[in-house]
Design a protein around this nucleic acid. Structure first.
Lengths: 188, 188, 188, 188
DNA sequence: GATGAATGAGGTTTCATTCAT
DNA sequence: TATGAATGAAACCTCATTCAT
């Protein structure tokens, strides 16, 4: 039997990619990523056929990780506000814990390497709380706006909130809460 | 006297940079930018010593252009809502008119090439309507949040709004207005 | 296992560098050196990280080669004159055989690319006959001069001798001998 | 009447070239030389048609300056040793006073930019004390060696001496004297 | 599968020289 | 003459990807 592609190595590459891209931008060299992952340059390409594929997979991974966090402990039966608050808080916690991951996720999102198909696949991870966003979209405040606006709005306000948490880490808890309240008020 | 450094050429380079970066990302080749600007490769470097400098100047230029738009026709004596609405609308109009510029502006903003000093210089262009944001920051909804949150919030919601305008260009006017109303409500 | 860095290729690069530099000076293009060595442009940089490193290694190589010649057949137990004569003759023979190498060695020596550290490392190769120079330094003629003067003196007179051998190759043997006698007399 | 090429500017260029080459090697940029000379890039080329010409003229200038020093106060009627000593001392003094000029002179000499014709023209400046070298060449010690050997020998030993003076500036006078004695003994 | 040397196109920047002013 | 912007070939070096081992 031949050796098998190891999941550990795959993860090591993705983690190394996060670090390297956080430091050097999307232009980060595959060779450096490989070295950081503790593997040979060539090995990287047995896990990801091209750099573009690596980047797309990374995007999926990061989105997936964030979504997993939001899905965990999701109060399926809570009130709309409770569910919205859960999503808000759990994403922010992930972003605070892994700022480089969030940074890279943003860079990937803004770039053109991520294919529409990848974006679609990434969105699939939201299944759990998508219903919540659908409900939010029904609120008077945004009913006249396209589907998805509520989600985008949350993302946007979180982005702004993150920025300030990064600057005042000690006020983290308060900022998380206040941020949510601003978001919530926007929807009333 | 020798030939004089022409403002037209400088502008041509910056415009070419916008187009090229919009298509190829921040990795866009200086040689291609030069060709698109109709000058020789070397000439670019008599206007901008390094690519990094070009990128920083471009950021300044784009921010400046957007701010100029917001400053133009600013209703100095209008109500707070009128002034906020002006800022909201004029930025969105600029972003809609020049989507590539906005896109590049976002990419630059997210990247690490823009120095803190450039960011400070860019912020200087906001003088006119900064007072408005200061006033917004005094509203109950965001009083507990750090200075600058209102501005960041507007940027964030605009970002979300832009995304949807890009997808539904025909609804532009309505989306602009609805977006503002969401923003405004968040502050009440 | 991957392909292994080949000593032959390394040598080929160094030899090509000698030829290219002899023809074009220290400004010789790395691309041309690579082509002459029969490898791709990029390959050169897997053997030498930068051109500067290549130049320093080349210096080491050339000095090493010359010193190896002088060490070979060194009459450890011969009289001072015999030992000095051996050093004198063997260096000149090397320089005559490989005039381009000597030329490049001189250019490198005069330039600022060779780091002090490289110079120190190069000097290490003289171990064998250093004792001889130390003894020469004790002779009355140069005792009042700094340590190392005798060695520098030999180098200088050899330089002058070389020049004339290059012009009158047929008189090589006589000039080698006469040159040594002038050197030797200077020390008496 | 049109403006005339100014001798001052020419000198300024040559001096700037010395400084720039001493710092950056023969690859020094003409534009930097021009800036250092306080003139425009283009102006340099009205004084020297090409960089190569500039370099050749510089060589001539430096050799000329050194020779002028040796010619000054030349003891036409002194003994052979007195005359030789004068040449020895005055060159060393020049080299000590203007180490960068000497350094550049050496670099030029070793390179291939200096044409044979320039070398011939440079040699012309030695007229005054050439007779002395001719006489030195008649001494038994070097009679069997080609014409010019005595001069080359002096140059070579001076080179060695210079090196040590550079390292021990305080012993300058003693080293100058001792160096000469070594040279003189070599000829006896 | 794993390795890392090899490849060569392409990236940024420099530079001697020209030429409009 | 003087100026310095303009030129574009070339320089050094990087990098995604391939492939011999």
């Amino acid at each position: 039997m031949s050796r098998v592609r190891s999941a550990e190595k795959r993860s090591a590459i993705l983690e190394a990619a996060v670090d390297e891209i956080a430091e050097a931008g999307l232009g980060a060299a595959t060779a450096k990523i490989a070295r950081r992952a503790g593997i040979a340059t060539g090995t990287l390409f047995t896990y990801f056929a091209t750099k573009e594929e690596l980047l797309n997979e990374l995007y999926l991974e990061l989105k997936g990780e964030a979504y997993a966090r939001m899905n965990a402990g999701f109060p399926q039966k809570g009130s709309l506000e409770e569910r919205a608050r859960h999503v808000w808080m759990s994403y922010l916690e992930w972003a605070i814990e892994a700022p480089r991951k969030r940074k890279v996720s943003v860079q990937l999102n803004v770039s053109d390497v991520i294919t529409p198909e990848t974006r679609v696949r990434a969105a699939a991870g939201r299944s759990f709380f998508d219903a919540t966003f659908a409900e939010l979209g029904e609120l008077d405040a945004v009913r006249a706006l396209p589907q998805g606006f509520a989600a985008a709005l949350m993302g946007a306000i979180q982005e702004a909130t993150m920025e300030f948490i990064a600057k005042n880490p000690k006020e983290r808890e308060r900022l998380k809460e206040e941020g949510f309240r601003v978001f919530w008020r926007a929807l009333q």
